[in-house]
Structure formats: structure tokens, C-alpha cells
């Protein structure tokens, strides 16, 4: 009880007027991701999903808050912890779940898996399994916007672990030199696999990691979806105005292990419980909506709708067939 009261108090300290519809939308998106990931964890446990599977539970506010600030056509690229990003960009839960089960109805027809999905239609560029590689690629997406002279912005997500890769700094330099419309989002969930950020980075404020190149940065509370949205709007607006790249360090937390096979012994159960009970992004949003007099039945309706989508996705992911054996040889090369 005391914890809940404290959480409410935290919410109240925000004085800004909140657009109820926007927050409802964010609440629904976050819940969809959470339920999706819980179901994915369950299907993994049943042996229906294999290999690596990195869940996004706890971090939902980051991608949902960012997405609220984007416009149609903006590009998104991220690492291997990517299910939430795909759902946030509007990709179908069915297609994502069916890719996790390695079935023909998946976004990559079962040939990519959890870490490798793409949607040209939604401008989602993956899904990358090599830590940090997506940062240079995302810089290239921003470059293509500048080359074409459009006003699109490319959003590149990476973890605080990836932030130490050399090509991240190479990318910062290139983006600043060329004034590219690139928003870099460091999702700082405090642990790069089992190594805490304090043990991995001599920089204590990752939002300043672009400072040598004059890249403006901000630290954001990643458990507060509206705080993320606000910071994202500022970053995206600066990019669209042609001011060059922008860096956000979003402080977040993953409740689950790094991947399914991570026993997470590098942190205490109390630490995880404390984040879950006091800082959960979905609970935060719900409290705030309750204060805006959203009634229980409205939450129930969202719950039911989300449950339906996830159940449908799980059913589809198990009923759509495995890819044809001939698929082994397709998509290696394009004709030409």
C-alpha cells in the first residue's frame, strides 16, 4: 500500500496538463507490448519459440513514448530486443509472433526469427543481432533522408551496453559532420547482459556521450511515457529543423533476464521488485488516468481487446505452417 501511495504521489508532482486520449493510447500500446512479451515468454517455455528471445518487459514506455512523437515515414531501427519496437510502429502482433515461432506467416517467413524482422511498409529496419551495428545503419537511414531532401527523421535505438562500441562514436561524428536528421536513443536498462553500466562505461551521463561532437543530449525518465514523449518531441523537432543529430538517454529497466536463458544473478530480486512495484510504466500511466477519471470499465475494455489480439497472435503463430522447404534457397539474391 505504501508503495502504491508513493507511486501516486510521484505522478501528482507532474503539473502538465495531460491529454487523456494520448495517454489512453499510450497505455494501450504499452499493455499490448507487455502482454505480447509475456505470451512470448510462455511460448518459449513451451518450446514453441527457439534460440534467442530477448523480452522488452519493463521498457515499454521508451518505445511507446518515442513513437508518439513520430510522423508517418520516419524510420525506426533497433537491436535484438525488438518486439516492442515492431508493435509500436504498427506491425501486426500476428506476424511478429509467427516469426518468433519460425512460421511462414511471420514477417520474414520464418527465416529471421526474434532478432531479425523488418517492415518496409512501416519503415521498420530491424531487428539487428550484432551489438551496435544498427547505430551506423540508422545513421545511413538519416543520411538517405538528407540525400532525398525530405523531412523524415531516423530513430536509432540501442542499449547502454552498445553505447561503448566504436562504431557508435564513429556514427556520432559522421552524423554531426553531415548534420543528419538522426535521433539516437540509448535505452539504459542498467545492465548490458550481466554487466552493470557502472562497470562498463567511464561516462556517468550517457546523454553527454555526443558532447565532443556538439550533439545535444538529454536524460529522460524512461518509466514515464509522457516524459519520454516530451523529450522525443524536442529531439525530433530539432532534427526536422535541420539542426543535426540529437541524443536521448532514456533510463529504463528490464524486469526479465537479458535473454530467456539468463538467470540474472547480477542483481537482487529486491531491486527488480522495487522497480516493478514503484516505477512500473504501465501502472504509472494507469494511476494518472484514474486521476483523470477514467473508469474501471474503460481499462477492462482495453484489457479485453489486448488479450484478444495476443490470443489471436498466439493461435496464429501456432497454426500458420512452417515455411516450405524450398524457402531455404529463396531470398539469397535478387534477380538482376
Amino acid at each position: 500500500m505504501a508503495q502504491a501511495a508513493e507511486a501516486k504521489k510521484r505522478v501528482r508532482t507532474k503539473e502538465k496538463t495531460v491529454d487523456r486520449d494520448t495517454l489512453m493510447k499510450a497505455y494501450r500500446s504499452m499493455l499490448l507490448i507487455r502482454r505480447f512479451e509475456e505470451k512470448a515468454g510462455q511460448l518459449y517455455g513451451m518450446g514453441l519459440i527457439g534460440g534467442f528471445c530477448h523480452l522488452y518487459i519493463g521498457q515499454e514506455a521508451v518505445v511507446v513514448g518515442m513513437q508518439l512523437a513520430l510522423s508517418l515515414g520516419d524510420e525506426v531501427i533497433t537491436s535484438y530486443r525488438d518486439h516492442g519496437h515492431m508493435l509500436a510502429t504498427g506491425m501486426e502482433a500476428r506476424g511478429v509472433m509467427a516469426e518468433l515461432t519460425g512460421r511462414s506467416g511471420g514477417y520474414s517467413h520464418g527465416k529471421g526469427g526474434s532478432m531479425h524482422m523488418f517492415s518496409k511498409e512501416k519503415n521498420f529496419f530491424g531487428g539487428h543481432g550484432i551489438v551496435g551495428a544498427q547505430v551506423s545503419l540508422g545513421t545511413g537511414l538519416a543520411f538517405s533522408n538528407m540525400y532525398r531532401g525530405n523531412d523524415r527523421v531516423a530513430i536509432t535505438y540501442f542499449g547502454e551496453g552498445a553505447s561503448n562500441q566504436g562504431q557508435v562514436f564513429e556514427s556520432f561524428n559522421l552524423a554531426a559532420l553531415m548534420k543528419l536528421p538522426a535521433v539516437y536513443v540509448i535505452e539504459n536498462n542498467k545492465y548490458g547482459m550481466g554487466t552493470s553500466v557502472e562497470r562498463a562505461s567511464a561516462s556517468h551521463d550517457l546523454s553527454k556521450n555526443g558532447a565532443p561532437w556538439g550533439i545535444p543530449g538529454a536524460q529522460v525518465d524512461g518509466m514515464d511515457v509522457l516524459a519520454v514523449k516530451e523529450a522525443a518531441e524536442q529531439a525530433v523537432a530539432a532534427c526536422r529543423a535541420g539542426k543535426g543529430p540529437y541524443l536521448l538517454e532514456v533510463k529504463t529497466y528490464r524486469y526479465r533476464g537479458h535473454s530467456m536463458s539468463d538467470p540474472a544473478k547480477y542483481r537482487t530480486r529486491e531491486e527488480v521488485q522495487m522497480m516493478r512495484t514503484q516505477h512500473d510504466c504501465i501502472e504509472n500511466a494507469r494511476h494518472r488516468l484514474e486521476e483523470l477519471d477514467v473508469e474501471e470499465k474503460a481499462f477492462k475494455a482495453i484489457d479485453d481487446e489486448v488479450k484478444g489480439i495476443i490470443q489471436d497472435a498466439a493461435d496464429y503463430a501456432q497454426s500458420t505452417p512452417e515455411p516450405e522447404l524450398s524457402e531455404l534457397y529463396t531470398d539469397v539474391m535478387l534477380e538482376g
Binding site: 524510420e75 531501427i77 529496419f125 551495428a133 547505430v135 551506423s136 545503419l137 540508422g138 545513421t139 545511413g140 537511414l141 543520411f143 538517405s144 540525400y147 566504436g166 562504431q167 564513429e170 556514427s171 561524428n173 559522421l174 559532420l177
Partner: peptide, 26 residues
């Protein structure tokens, strides 16, 4: 200079940048 682009000495970075641009259709 828009189409003939000097880069810093940063192979990993500019190669990734170019690959990203190609994935986006350039």
C-alpha cells in the same frame, strides 16, 4: 559534394552508413 562524399577515416562507420542508405533504397 552531395553525391561525391569525403568521409573521415572511419571505415566501420561510413560502411554502416552506406549500407543503411542502401537498405532505404539509395
Amino acid at each position: 559534394p552531395k553525391r561525391v562524399i569525403d568521409t573521415p577515416i572511419t571505415e566501420h562507420g561510413f560502411t554502416g552508413l552506406a549500407v543503411g542508405a542502401a537498405l532505404n533504397g539509395l
